[in-house]
Structure formats: C-alpha cells, structure tokens
C-alpha cells in the first residue's frame, strides 16, 4: 500500500513536469490556433541553454532561470516575428493556416539538426549540481528532490501565466485575440504583436521546463521528440488552450506511467496512455478542461 503512495507522489511530480513541457504548446495553440511542431525543439534549446548556463558557471540549476527565461523569450519572440509572421500575413483569410504548421515542422528539423551539428550527438548530464541524485526519505518512501523542485516550478509557472492572462492588460489582449482575432483587431489590438508575445511566453515556459529537467535528466539533440509526443497527448487530454488543463493532463499521464507498472509491464502503460488519449478524443474532443464551443 505504501508503495502505491510512493508511486503516486512520483507520478504527480513527474507529471507536473510533463505539464510544464506542454504549457507553451497549449498557450501557443490557444492564441495562434496553430500546432507548434517545433515545441519539442524549443524545449531542447531550453535544456541546452540551462545545461550550459549551469555547466559553465557552476551556479544552482534554478539560478539559471535568470538567464534562460529572457533568452528563451527573445528567441521565441524573434522566431515568430521573423519566420512565422510573414506566413500568417500571406494567409490572412485562413483561420488555421496549414502552412504555418509546415513551417514549424521545418523549424523543428533545422533546430534539431543544428544542435546535432553544434553540440554533437553526445548525451550530457549535469554531473555536479546540488540537486542531482538528492532524495528525501520518509521511512520506506523516497522522493526525488529535483522532481520536487520541478513540481514547484511547474505550479508556479502555470499560476503566473494564468494570472498574467487574467489580470494584466496584455493578458486581456491575448485572450481577446485568442477568442476572435478579427474582433480584437477591430478593437485596436495589433494581433501580430500579440502573437509575438504569446510565442515568446510559450518558448520561455519551454525554457523553464528545460531548467526543471536538466538536474536529473540528460540532454541530447533529439530529446525534444520524446517530450513532444507526450506534450501533444497532454494538451489534448487537458483541452487545447487550457493552462490548468495542461498541468492536470500532465499529472494524469505521470500517474498512469508511475502507478501502472506496478501491476503490469512499463510497455503496457504507454499503450494505456494512448488509449486514454483516443477515449478522450471520442468522448470529449475538447479535452477534460477545454472550452466546448470555440466560435
């Protein structure tokens, strides 16, 4: 019984980090109505940024956020402004421009292969950092300290993004654009600027996820792909565009992955996650926490 509790805790912690990796994906979709296939690559860039920031300076991994958040924000902002915006402008009449999806796929390939070229195919881990390998032990229960930090980072990030969207003027403008971009434009909102900001924030959350992952995970050029697939499942589970949904969707996947293997092999839990994904698509296509009607 005590084991179930231990696995449950691990599942929630790891799941919240999955949710954090998917946060940017859901935000960008909610606003731009475009699936960003390059999201995994942005996570990869975030992980490398965090890795090098810590490896070169030797600071506490979470101190790297000071550097990673602005760098990643600017990176996302610039990517949207330079690469994606022109396509949007060319396809003004289309609500969900397919070409943008193709462009993000291109960005994904370019980023992954660029990092393969620059950093090489090696697997890297932060060997000497204050979080690596740390465990809290309560009798038989062991809890990973870096995952606990990741959990805190995920909740804090989701809360911050949520409050930003609800309480600030820019946040309201973002929500307005996501509801109806033409109407928002008529109200004097520059939709392309909103896209830049949304993309920047989405990329910055991928950077935060990178910081949460590097203390216990390894970094390599195609690492994004592993989290990307999970990210899509989580986002659909939680409801596309829903911030809280991403976090809870992540936790659901995490708990299945963690508790499941105790009664079956780890291979089966993967199948169960996909089965749940299909079930949600059949029964409640808008996701567990998504908005049902989207004009």
């Amino acid at each position: 019984m005590i084991y179930v509790l231990e696995d449950l805790i691990n599942g929630i912690l790891m799941g919240s980090i999955y949710g954090l990796t998917a946060l940017g994906l859901t935000l960008i979709f909610g606003v731009l109505k475009v699936i960003n296939f390059a999201h995994g690559s942005m996570l990869m860039v975030g992980m490398y940024a965090a890795y090098w920031a810590v490896a070169l300076t030797g600071v506490h991994p979470y101190l790297a956020l000071v550097l990673v958040i602005p760098v990643m924000y600017l990176f996302g902002h610039a990517m949207q402004d330079i690469i994606i915006k022109p396509i949007f402008k060319a396809e003004k009449q289309v609500r969900e421009p397919i070409t943008v999806i193709i462009v993000t796929t291109g960005v994904w390939y370019i980023l992954d292969n660029l990092s393969l070229l620059v950093f090489g195919p090696q697997y890297r881990t932060l060997q000497d950092n204050p979080l690596r390998g740390k465990m809290l032990e309560f009798g038989d229960i062991m809890i990973s300290v870096p995952k606990l930090w990741g959990f805190a980072a995920a909740v804090a990030t989701a809360l911050a993004v949520y409050l930003f969207l609800q309480k600030t003027r820019m946040g309201r403008a973002i929500r307005a654009t996501s509801l109806d971009r033409e109407a928002a434009s008529l109200m004097g909102i520059n939709q392309y600027r909103i896209y830049n900001v949304a993309f920047g924030i989405g990329t910055a959350t991928a950077g935060i996820a990178g910081v949460a992952l590097v203390p216990f995970y390894n970094v390599f050029p195609s690492v994004g792909v592993l989290f990307d697939i999970k990210g899509f499942i989580i986002v659909v589970l939680g409801g596309l565009g829903s911030i809280g949904g991403a976090l809870l969707g992540g936790m659901i996947v995490g708990v299945i992955e963690s508790v499941g293997p105790q009664v079956m092999t780890a291979t089966w839990t993967e199948a169960i996650v996909y089965a749940l994904f299909l079930l949600v698509l059949f029964v409640k296509p808008s996701g567990l926490f998504g908005v049902k009607y989207d004009w």
């Binding site: 691990n10 697939i229 963690s258």
Partner: peptide
C-alpha cells in the same frame, strides 16, 4: 522480475521501483 520498457521513456523511476 521480467520487465520490458519503452526506450523512449522519459521517466524510469517506476521501473527502478520495481
């Protein structure tokens, strides 16, 4: 224990627990 796991797993602590 006889445990196959997916190579693409992002968290192996459940397997390690087993």
């Amino acid at each position: 224990l006889d445990e196959p796991y997916p190579s693409s797993a992002t968290d192996l602590s459940p397997v390690v627990q087993k």
